[in-house]
Each structure stands twice: as C-alpha cells, then as structure tokens.
C-alpha cells in the first residue's frame, strides 16, 4: 500500500479506501457467535480433562507424557488467544506485539535456564 500522494483529493480518496478496507476486514471475518464460544469452551474442557487423565496414566505414557502435556497446553493457549482474545479476527499488529513478547520471554528464559544446565 502506498500513500505518496499528498494532494488533498488523492488523500481523501485514499482515506476512504482504507476505511473501506478496514470495514470489510471487520465484516469479512465476523466474530464467532455465542454458540461457537460454547463449542470452543467444550474443546478446552475436553483438553483439560485429557491433561488430567494423562497425569494419572503417567506410567503407561512413559516418555510421551511430557510432549503430550506440552502439546495440549500449547493448543489450549492458542485457542484462548485466537478465539477468546480475538487475535484471529483482529489486527495483525496486536498479534505481532503479543507474540514478540511471548517469543522473547521463551527465548531469554529458556536460554538462561540452559546456562544452568550446559557447561
């Protein structure tokens, strides 16, 4: 997208265009309905139940336990962020801001914890 023009007319036209795009963006990806939200919550509930179950069948799962729990955690996290917090439907800028904080946190803290382990 460009906005090299400064002359009043072009500017207005441009503004109108952007506004239009912003609107269609909003309408194009409407927020989920209440029914969707309940469905999403059900998925979350099932995942939580699975998490708790896997804790009790720890021995059968063996080495799979930790990866399984981690995956379920990430899925739950992503569902809440994308649907309940609307990141899926909202501006990319929000996603970028939040994800940069998240990735930064994971990177520096995993890095720091690793220096306690590796020699």
């Amino acid at each position: 997208m460009s906005d090299q023009t400064l002359t009043g007319e072009a500017q207005q036209e441009h503004e109108a265009q952007t506004e239009h795009e912003a609107q269609t963006e909003h309408e194009g990806r409407a927020h989920p309905s209440d029914r969707n939200y309940v469905g999403i919550a059900l998925i979350l509930a099932v995942l939580t139940a699975l998490e708790v179950v896997s804790f009790y069948v720890e021995e059968q799962l063996g080495a799979l336990l930790v990866p399984a729990l981690m995956i379920m955690m990430i899925v739950k996290f992503a569902i809440v962020v994308m649907w309940f917090m609307h990141l899926r439907f909202d501006s990319n800028l929000f996603t970028r801001v939040f994800v940069s904080g998240l990735v930064l946190a994971i990177t520096v803290y995993v890095g720091a914890l690793m220096t306690f382990r590796f020699w």
Partner: peptide, 27 residues
C-alpha cells in the same frame, strides 16, 4: 494512524510485557 484504538493497543503492549514477568517467575 493504524485505525486501531489506543486503549486496546496499549493493553496488548502491556500483555506482551506481562509475558516476561510471568516467564521470569515460572523460570
């Protein structure tokens, strides 16, 4: 400028910052 509300952007920035707070405590 971005068409986004100041308050909402501010909250997202704050939440991004909170990631590092809880990350530290969890670590």
């Amino acid at each position: 400028s971005t068409g986004l509300s100041n308050e909402k952007l501010g909250m997202w920035l704050f939440l991004g910052s909170e990631c590092l707070l809880f990350g530290g405590l969890i670590s």
